Computed example of a mutant assay.
Amino acid sequence: MDLKLYKPFFIKFQSLIALFILCLLISLISDKFLTVSNGWNVMRQISVNICISVGMTLVVLTAGIDLSVGSVLALCGALTAGLLKNGLAFPQADLFIGFTILGAMLVGVLAGTFLGAFNGWAITKFKVPAFIATLAMLTIARGLTLLYTQGFPISGLGDDFAYLGTGWFLSIPVPVWISGIVVLLAVILTTKTRLGRYIYAIGGNESASRLSGINISRVKIIVYAISGALAAIGGLIVTSRLDSAQPNAGSSYELDSIAAVVIGGTSLSGGKGTILGTVLGAIIIGVLNNGLVLLNVSPFWQQVVKGAVILLAVIIDKSNSKND
C-alpha cells in the first residue's frame, strides 16, 4: 500500500480526523461525554470562541494577527453591563441617560468595532506590525476595563439580558443561534463578495494586490473592525451568561481563537483557509477543554496541553506549506 496516495486525503480532512479520534478517546474514558446535555454544554461554550475565531480568521487571511480580542471582549461586555445597569449620568447638567438592552448592546458592539478599526488604522497608517499594534490594544483595552469597573464586577443585569447567554430558542441555545448566524454571514462574505476576494488576494500576495488596484488599507481596517465587532458580540454572550461583567473576562481567549484558526487549516502566512475550517477547529478546542474537565485534569495541565496542540498545529501547517 502506497501511503503517499492517501496523503492529500489526510491533509484535506486532518481536522475532521483529529476531531473523530479525540471524541472516540474521550468517550472511551468518560461515560459523561456522549450525552445530549454535555453536547449542548460544549456547543454553548464554544459559541463565544466561534464568534471571535471567525473575526480572527479574516485577519489571519490577510496575513495579520489580532491579540486584542480577549481584552476588547472584556471592555465591551463591561460597557454594555454598565450602561444597562447604571446608564450615563451628567450631574453638572442634571442629565441622566438610561439605556434599553438593545441600546446598551449596540454601544458595546460599536465600541468593539471602533477599537478594531483603530487597530487596522494604526497598522496601515503607521506600518506598525500587527503583532505590536494589537498587543498594545490588548493592554489598553484591559486597562480601560479596569478603570471603568474599578476592578469590581458589574452584576444583576436582569433576566431579559440573561436570555442572550442562557436562553433557548426552538430547543437550541441562543448563543448557538448567534454563532451560527455569524458563521453564515462570514461564509457569504468570504465566498460571494468582492471584499472576500480582496481578503484572500491580500493574504496571498499583498504587493500584487496593491498593483492590481486593491485599496489595501481600507480592506485591512474593515477586517480588523469586523474582528473587534465579533469580539464585542462574544463579550455580550459571556456577560449575559454570567449575569456579570468581570474585569478579567476574556483572558486567554486570543489563544483559543488563534488555536481554532490554525487547527482549522488557515495558514498564518495568509491567503489560505476557510470559515468552516475554523468552526471545526473551534469545536476541537471546545471538545478538548470539555474532555480535560470531565477527566478531572488539573487546569495547569490543561494550559500545557492546549499550548502543545497549538504548537503541533503550526508545525503541521508549516509542513504542509513546504509540500505545496
Rank of each mutant, 00 (worst) to 15 (best):
L276I: 10
S155Y: 12
S240K: 07
L25T: 07
N119L: 03
G286A: 09
A117W: 02
R210C: 06
A130H: 06
E206N: 02
I237M: 09
A231T: 01
L211W: 10
A231L: 00
G120L: 15
T100Y: 04
S207V: 11
W121G: 05
K306Y: 07
A232W: 05
S37K: 14
A208Y: 02
S53R: 03
L84P: 13
T145Y: 08
S15E: 10
S217C: 02
M56Q: 15
R197V: 00
I101F: 02
A308Q: 00
F20S: 13
P299H: 07
G271V: 05
S269M: 12
G250M: 10
L230A: 00
L146E: 08
V183C: 09
N215P: 13
K318Y: 11
D317Q: 15
G158F: 13
P8E: 03
L211R: 15
R218C: 10
V261C: 04
Q92K: 11
L146Q: 15
L195W: 11
G77F: 01
L61T: 06
T113G: 12
S217T: 11
L189P: 04
F300N: 14
A208I: 07
G103Q: 03
D256L: 02
V187K: 01
L255I: 13
A260E: 12
V309K: 03
P247G: 06
I11E: 12
T134M: 04
G151Q: 02
G270Y: 00
P247F: 02
L236N: 09
Y253G: 01
A74E: 03
K32H: 14
S321N: 08
I315F: 14
W168C: 01
G277V: 05
L184K: 02
Y200V: 07
P247Y: 10
I101E: 13
D159C: 00
L288D: 06
L67H: 06
I226Y: 00
Y253L: 15
L255K: 04
L110D: 01
L88A: 07
G213N: 03
L164H: 00
L292F: 12
V287E: 14
L184A: 15
D160R: 09
